[in-house]
Computed example of a mutant assay.
Amino acid sequence: MKIAFYGSSLISAYWNGAATYYRGLLRALAEKGYDITFYEPDVYDRQKNRDIDPPDWCKVVVYEGTVEALGRVAAEARRADIVVKASGVGFEDDLLLSQVLSAARSGALKIFWDVDAPATLAELRANPGHPLRLALADVDLVLTYGGGEPVVDAYRAVGAADCVPIYNALDPETHHPVPENRRFAADLGFLGNRLPDREARVEHFFLEPAFRLPGQTFLLGGSGWQDKPMPPNVGYIGHVSTRDHNAFNVTPKAVLNISRASMAENGFSPATRVFEAAGAGACLITDHWEGIDLFLKPGEEVLVARDGQDVADLLAGLSRERAKTIGERALARVLAEHTYVHRAEKVDAIFRAHAARGEAAA
């Protein structure tokens, strides 16, 4: 079956946190025989900051950030059996959704794939006339990369025919244990871009513990933090290429996951960072969110902090030996239950069930 997938970017993770998710899941689907074309706009300097070449398992079409170019690539949806418009493409999202749905042929499976469901749903609830909310009548299925039953119920309440979470996971070919790199040496590392709904939580869960533990070293990676006031024991290294993520995860004694505010409030939304860190065998400290025990066991496979004081206490009492044990257990768990091969099994079943219903109706 042919898939036309319209997303932010497959080949650049620059200001594009969904890249890891797209790569892992679509490669796993390609290995099942799907013929995939990924359409991405040339915006936000992503093409100047590619971190992978176009893969051999997926055709990548990069189009100019113009309405005319958008129209040309949207028209190609008519060739596909499965048409996917992801959230947060970054250029004329509402127009792209409208044109893709119009171009899709009768009988094609039309999907809206939401990679930030809590934020999207907040917009839909606030605006009954939102273009996406009106378009849901023409969408066969909403897939999300997290959210659990709260997101499923919320999407059905605003008009979705159905909603199924397809959670983030591990691609073990990309994220795996590597030797340590002195460049990333620290007691605690955090990797994340500076975003409005994350900054206050970074202050609380990362910078506050750094103030509390002046004798320990902290390492911050990600774009946008260069003018942020920080204590002297925090080192800032800017954007970290995906090719260095494994070393960043495995070198510090522990690494920190801080969910965006909307994700933490909703729960059941593990970030890609959770599985990337576990896949490298890192000891992960994460902020608390409902549902984490579905993915990793608190206290044994992951450490959970409800506030900055918890982070400081956990870090102060964490030996290198215990951190290593926690990382090894996390790696074993995600390899056994949470790879993109596991997620692709579920997606494949959904796609085949739709195709079977279409054949029966015909």
Rank of each mutant, 00 (worst) to 15 (best):
A4P: 03
A4M: 10
S8I: 09
I11F: 01
S12D: 06
N16L: 04
G17R: 00
A18S: 12
A19D: 04
Y21K: 05
R27G: 01
A28W: 10
L29S: 01
L29D: 01
E31V: 07
D51I: 09
P54R: 06
C58F: 06
E64C: 02
E76P: 09
A77S: 08
A77L: 03
R79D: 13
D81Q: 02
V89G: 03
V89D: 05
D93E: 11
L96F: 05
V100F: 02
L101A: 04
A108P: 00
L109T: 04
I111T: 05
P118C: 10
P118F: 03
T120G: 01
N127M: 08
P128L: 12
P128D: 14
G129P: 04
P131L: 10
L132T: 00
A135K: 05
A135I: 07
D140A: 09
L143M: 10
T144S: 06
Y145E: 10
G147N: 06
P150S: 11
V151Q: 11
D153T: 14
D153N: 15
R156L: 11
A157R: 07
V158S: 07
G159W: 00
G159N: 01
C163P: 04
C163F: 08
P165R: 14
H175I: 02
H175W: 02
F184R: 00
A186R: 01
D187L: 08
D187C: 05
L188A: 05
P196H: 15
D197I: 07
A200F: 04
R201S: 07
E203S: 13
F205E: 01
T217S: 15
S223E: 14
P231V: 01
N233Q: 05
V234T: 05
G235A: 14
V240Q: 01
F248P: 03
V250K: 11
T251R: 08
S262T: 14
A264Y: 03
G267N: 04
S269I: 06
R273F: 11
F275N: 09
F275K: 13
F275R: 07
G279R: 05
A280W: 02
C283L: 10
I285M: 09
H288S: 15
I292Y: 07
F295L: 08
E300L: 14
E300C: 15
V302T: 11
L303F: 09
R306K: 15
R306H: 14
D307L: 05
Q309H: 13
D310T: 08
G317F: 01
E321G: 08
E321V: 12
A323V: 09
I326R: 03
L331Y: 07
A332R: 08
A336S: 15
A336V: 12
Y340M: 13
V341K: 09
G358S: 02
G358C: 02
A360N: 07
